[in-house]
Design a protein around this nucleic acid. Structure first.
Length: 304
DNA sequence: AGCCAGGCTCTCG
DNA sequence: CGAGAGCATGGC
């Protein structure tokens, strides 16, 4: 296997540990994203060929610099540029947090999380497909079960490579999901209905209808409407994709039970909030509702 | 044992 | 329209 390295400068402040940790938090013991020994790994297809991307911090939070290494069998000229774009997208190194930090100085709760999680960028999943499968797999069930199922999806149906005694798994392609069929999906503890939704999403993705660039010029509301029309994708899943795959910065998934509980704990002394109450309360964080959401979730993890 | 968990669709009134 | 059932599984 050959390798190639280059460096990248994220917009400061940037913490690889916090950002990669946020990305892997939703996954189980085996995931398409791995963070261990201070290195972020992802097995990723670029231009039809598999590469293992490894990212390590060679600077610090205030003056960040990343070293990216590609391991693969066969290289072409554009690989480095594609890898750079992919890492930029996943680790959100292009997001400038300073306006959000400034705007939040009037909010003591967010301010304390910002101090604690300084440099946390809102990571993105590489494709809408991956975000949707994650969302559907996690609908309604506890995060424990969601992680278990996500592990099985990746471990059973993704590609894998072995490097230095470790096995790395990639997120399955739409075709790999289609190939497993309904029975393959039932084996990994998905309900029959969710399995059908996932196959439907996979066939749309396989036809190229879920490419990120298709949605680039659309507004958040237009995208929500489009995604909502997919079978198995409601408001919660659509917002999750908007936030976690497309990287839109002003999304607050008020339907999310855990997010509502977090807002309720920190801002309402535990009083339960309706979805609409939570949604309108979150307007105070506009136009950075996504960032507020990320920092609230990060804070919640300290106490749960 | 039974209810809830980081929802969604379908049916029925 | 709104309300209610059903779904899979693990944890408590």
């Amino acid at each position: 296997m050959k390798h190639y390295s280059f460096s990248m400068i994220p917009i400061p402040p940037f913490s690889l540990e916090l950002t990669a940790g946020y990305q892997t938090y939703f996954q189980g013991e085996v995931g398409a994203d791995v963070f261990k020994g201070k290195v972020y790994y992802r097995l990723q297809e670029l231009d039809g060929r598999l590469f293992l991307l490894s990212v390590r911090e060679t600077g610090n939070v205030e003056v960040p610099q990343l070293e990216v290494t590609l391991n693969g069998e066969e290289f072409s000229e554009s690989d480095a540029e594609q890898a750079r774009r992919t890492v930029t997208h996943i680790l959100a190194t292009d997001i400038d947090l300073s306006q959000f930090y400034k705007l939040s100085s009037a909010d003591p709760i967010l301010t304390s999380f910002i101090k604690r999680f300084r440099g946390l960028h809102p990571p993105r999943m590489p494709t809408i497909f991956e975000g949707m499968i994650f969302a559907v797999a996690g609908q309604q069930i506890s995060s424990t079960v969601a992680r278990l199922i996500r592990t099985l999806i990746v471990k059973r149906y993704g590609s894998s490579i072995r490097l230095n005694e470790h096995v790395y798994y990639g997120f399955p392609s739409p075709q790999q999901i289609l190939d497993t069929g309904i029975n393959g999906l039932l084996e990994i503890k998905l309900s029959r209905r969710k399995a059908e939704y996932i196959l439907g999403i996979a066939s749309r993705a396989a036809r190229g209808e879920l490419e990120l660039n298709i949605f680039k010029s659309l507004s958040d509301e237009e995208i929500l409407e489009t995604l909502d029309s997919l079978h198995g994708v409601g408001r919660w899943s659509a917002e999750w994709v908007l936030l976690r795959a497309m990287g839109r910065l002003n999304v607050f998934p008020a339907g999310d039970l855990a997010l509502r509980a977090t807002v309720s704990n920190y801002y309402f002394g535990g009083r339960k909030l309706s979805e609409e109450e939570a949604r309108s309360f979150a307007e105070r964080w506009s136009p950075f509702k996504t960032l507020a959401t990320s920092y609230l979730f990060a804070g919640r993890r300290l106490s749960v």
